[in-house]
Write a protein that binds this DNA or RNA. Structure first.
Length: 927
DNA sequence: ACCGCCGGGTGCC
DNA sequence: ACCGCCGGGTGCC
């Protein structure tokens, strides 16, 4: 295995490969989110808010000692070299390929060292004229940093006798360079700003993926014989496209051949060797179009040179038994399927003793309760072996655990009965870690977590990293969008010929998220974050003309994306039934209205006070609480037990204080407002609450405290922050908060439940077999609805987040069944289930209460409005008249607009997020 | 001459 | 480097 621990060559890869230099101990386990400053690149995390301070001309010396060459106008990277024995201020200069060009002249380096080491600015270089220099060459440097560091940088430079020239117009593109006679002082900074309107951005965004109607993407291709399912036209197109990508040797995007050199038009870098394009790309079809099936078809159809994967053909029922079936109960959604885990022993293979399966190798999720070993009846008569002996033959598929069973099912379903694949599920504590055996499989399936765990234990012993794969497929690849996450690093350091990314959501928040994917695809020069940032990310986020077009052409060249509404040969891609959303207004009964009004009045007074005092942020949790109670009152008066407000701040004992904070946090978490952590801007993980009542992810806020010590302050309100003041919500408490069973309370209905029951009963009269989803964010509300359903004799089932996996599977199967007497109603909590949840048996949805985030609603509707739905889907949203719910609808519309334009704008800052929220609050409570 | 000037050796950090 | 800088050789006109 010659690739084992082979050192990576070339500096472009060093962002990934060189993160274990000898000076760092190799196996120090760093807790997640606490990694030491990444020395791999000069680009820092916070580059989005960077402005251009100015430019400076300097010189690069010592050219003749290094092999790196530079073209005219080529970008170069400046890298500190603090351990240089001749000068601790040394700054070396590398070309785009990572080859050293020279050093920055020492007087200038002395000025830059402090600035770079303290991360006051990012210094980027472009060599205006580099082609023929022998000993030195000029370099035009741009200084980028945050507004507040500008003075410090200018001072540093001044101390060493340097002064910045004003920014050039073409900054960052390196195409033009103005001779820098000692210019005037400096002009206004170039702010990172979005120059496009939301409307423009939206249309640009649409174009980004919709303009992909190229010739090579509309050819069709039949799957190999072993593909047991007939492919739909758009799937044949995808297969043809994927096969052509894997077999093509086109130049990667932004590379041109120019007189025997290969030239990168973004960085102006040139090389003699032809740069390799990724043999793969991004399949970004909408959910439900069959990415999994297409990928399986690809695996079976394109093994080498367009020839199909040589799989064993099962012809008759005799000879030796090599086939077992193995059941994996925990992750199987459907008991009747089995996964064939087969292995035929090649002479060179060592079969480990401890598998307990003889020559059958299988791993299973932990804990495996029972191991079922069965002898199959089929057998293999002839095995055509035409594997080339040296080349890799295994496809590695990495997916989130939640879709692992889906892959297994789909392999089962779509592989012809006459063939069988060697599939190994690399999962569970008894997974087989022998690379020799893994690399004998046709397919190895694993999860991001398992991969990252192996890699975390030891990068050098991780079996998956010892193998050179034929092909790697990342499913739901947006889970690796954080470049610093262990998972991402583990994925990026896998070796493979062909690389695929499957995702339904190619850009979630910003261009930033794309880097991990592009880097995985090994597209030069973007594997190095600096080049990605300088050539794509910054131009796009700053709205530099052409920036978006550049990104677009990059995406276009490697992506296939169809939406549910795309067309194939003039016809809709999927003949999905219609989907209608109706809004059913509900008027509260008099008593309900009275309670609602009194709570609203009280809440409004309090919130008004917070506005007047300017303490809205400090009471954010309380305000969410008010809104929550109002939303609950729209559903049912019993949802909201403690109508008295909890605004008392005068908690005395530490325990009381703790309890109050826990309560506030529970409020925030249970309010369904989908709170983000203001540090990482993602959904909260391991939420903790500060003394000032702001909720963050635990790792995030620890990092803030660590980096700001000794005097850390809250990112939201700047009040004092200390680790010992953070309060966690224990798992137990979190669970308790969700079930608000009220023991002795007598069952009563509510206006909304009446409206629902009326609709359900009408529907039953019309057609007793129609199935419905009844969706709410409040599980207690679902419990109340149960009573009404029972009274009217509905057979129903229920799915919510608190249910064990086994129960969920049961509930889903039961509901999906078409048997007489199977449930016609499913009570569903809005966020239950992963992306894959398939509830196509239902053709009606009753959304009992609006969600803050319209995307969450849409995702929920898609559970039944997807491939396999036979009927038109009618969605009814119950909205209480003259209530917070109506205002929520307005905010939802605003959010939809925002989401459409969110791409390419920079992520909002913590304070902007809060400002938005404050505005929302105003709108919600009619202030 | 404890200078200037010449011309060869030499050259990143 | 067709430079600068260093340091040795040298020394009226």
């Amino acid at each position: 295995m010659s690739w084992l621990c082979r050192p990576r060559k070339g500096g472009v890869d060093c962002a990934v490969a060189f993160d274990v230099p000898c000076k760092r101990s190799r196996s120090v386990a760093m807790p997640k989110g606490f990694s030491v400053a990444d020395t791999s690149g000069t680009v820092e995390e916070d580059t989005d808010s960077a402005i251009l301070y100015g430019t400076l001309r300097g010189s690069i010396v010592g050219l003749r000692y290094y092999k790196g060459v530079v073209n005219n106008n080529e970008m170069v990277a400046l890298q500190r070299e603090p351990n240089n024995p001749y000068d601790k201020n040394a700054v070396k200069v590398n070309n785009v390929n990572g080859d050293q060009v020279g050093h920055i002249k020492k007087e200038l380096a002395a000025a830059l060292a402090g600035i770079m080491d303290n991360k006051l600015a990012v210094v980027e270089g472009v060599v205006p004229y580099g082609a023929k220099n022998v000993f030195t060459m000029p370099v035009q440097m741009s200084f980028w940093g945050r507004e507040e560091n500008k003075e410090a940088v200018l001072d540093q430079l001044k101390m060493h006798g340097f002064k910045l020239a004003p920014p050039l117009k073409e900054c960052g593109f390196g195409s033009k360079w103005i001779s820098g006679k000692t210019g005037p002082t400096y002009s206004a900074p170039v702010h990172a700003a979005v120059h496009l309107t939301t409307e423009q951005l939206k249309s640009e965004f649409d174009k980004l993926f919709e303009d992909l109607k190229e010739d090579d993407k509309t050819c069709e291709m039949e799957g190999a014989e072993a593909v047991g399912t007939l492919l739909l036209p758009h799937q044949k197109q995808a297969l043809a496209w994927m096969v052509s990508r894997e077999n093509s040797d086109n130049l990667p995007p932004f590379w041109e051949e120019r007189n025997n050199f290969y030239y990168n038009i973004l960085t102006n870098f040139a090389v003699k060797e032809r740069p390799k394009n990724v043999l793969g790309g991004i399949l970004a079809d909408d959910m439900g179009l069959g990415k999994t099936l297409t990928t399986i078809a690809l695996i079976l159809t394109n093994f080498q040179d367009g020839k199909p994967l040589p799989v064993e053909k099962i012809t008759s029922d005799k000879s030796y038994e090599v086939r077992w079936k193995k059941k994996i109960p925990e992750i199987r959604s459907c008991i009747r399927y089995y996964i064939y885990v087969c292995f035929f022993a090649a002479p060179s293979c060592v079969i480990p003793e401890d598998t307990g399966f003889g020559s059958v190798l299988a791993a299973s999720p932990t804990p495996l309760k029972r191991k079922t070993k069965r002898k199959g009846t089929a057998s293999i008569q002839s095995v055509e072996k035409k594997y080339s002996e040296d080349g890799p033959r295994t496809t590695l598929i990495i997916c989130p655990l939640s879709v692992l069973s889906n892959w297994i099912d789909q392999f089962e379903q779509h592989t012809s009965q006459d063939f069988h694949l060697n599939i190994y599920i690399y999962y569970g504590s008894d997974r087989n870690k022998d690379p020799a055996i893994l690399s004998e499989q046709d397919v190895v399936l694993t999860t991001y977590n398992v991969l990252a765990t192996d890699y975390g234990v030891s990068k050098y012993d991780s079996p998956l990293h010892k193998i050179k794969w034929l092909r790697i497929v990342l499913d739901e690849a947006h889970t690796i969008r954080n470049p610093n996450a262990q998972q991402t690093k583990a994925v990026l350091s896998l070796e493979a010929h062909r690389r695929w990314v499957l995702t339904g959501t190619p850009i979630q928040n910003s261009v930033k998220d794309l880097w991990s994917l592009i880097s995985f695809l090994k597209l030069k020069p973007f594997t190095d974050r600096e080049w990605w940032h300088r050539t794509i990310q910054r131009p796009v986020t700053m709205g530099t003309p052409g920036g978006l077009r550049r990104l677009q052409s990059l995406i276009k060249s490697i992506t296939l994306r169809r939406t549910k509404i795309s067309k194939v040969k003039g016809k809709p891609i999927l003949e999905l039934p219609e989907r209608k959303v109706l809004i059913q207004h509900v008027t509260l009964a008099e008593e309900e209205r009275q309670i609602y009004q009194s709570v609203k009045k009280e809440g409004k007074v309090a919130i008004n006070r917070f506005f007047n005092e300017g303490t809205v942020l400090a009471h954010y949790a309380d305000i969410l609480g008010v809104l929550l109670r109002l939303r609950q009152l729209c559903c049912h008066p019993h949802l909201c037990t403690n109508t008295s407000s909890s605004f008392s701040v005068g908690s005395n004992t530490p325990e009381e204080l703790r309890q109050m904070l826990v309560n506030k946090m529970k409020l925030v978490l249970s309010s369904g407002s989908d709170e983000e952590c203001a540090v990482c801007l993602e959904s909260l993980t391991l939420p903790v609450i500060t003394h000032c009542a702001h909720v963050f992810c635990k790792p995030c806020i620890y990092e803030v405290i660590r980096s700001e010590q000794p005097n850390a302050s809250c990112p939201l309100c700047r009040s004092e922050l200390r680790v010992e003041h953070l309060v966690e919500c224990s798992l137990e408490e979190e669970l308790n908060s969700s079930n608000g069973k009220k023991g002795g309370q007598e069952w009563i209905s509510s206006s909304k439940i009446n409206a629902l029951m009326h609709a359900l009963i009408e529907l039953r009269k019309e057609n007793p077999t129609i199935k419905c989803l009844v969706v709410s964010q409040f599980t207690t509300f679902l419990s109340l609805i149960e009573n009404a359903l029972k009274k009217s004799g509905f057979v129903f089932t229920r799915l919510d987040g608190s249910m064990a996996q086994k129960k969920r599977v049961e509930a889903i199967q039961c509901f999906q069944s078409s048997q007489a007497g199977s449930p016609t109603v499913m009570l569903l909590s809005l966020k239950a289930g992963g992306v894959g949840l398939n509830l196509t048996a239902a053709s009606r949805v009753f959304l009992m209460d609006p969600a803050w985030n319209p995307a969450a609603e849409d995702q929920c509707f898609d559970r039944c409005h997807r491939l396999g739905q036979k009927y038109n889907v009618i969605i009814t949203k119950f909205i209480v008249k003259d209530s917070v719910e109506e205002n929520m609808l307005k905010i939802q519309n605003k959010k939809r607009e925002l989401a459409a334009g969110a791409f390419a704008t920079k992520k909002p800052s913590a304070s902007e997020i809060k400002q938005t929220k404050i505005n929302e609050i105003k709108a919600l409570i009619d202030l």
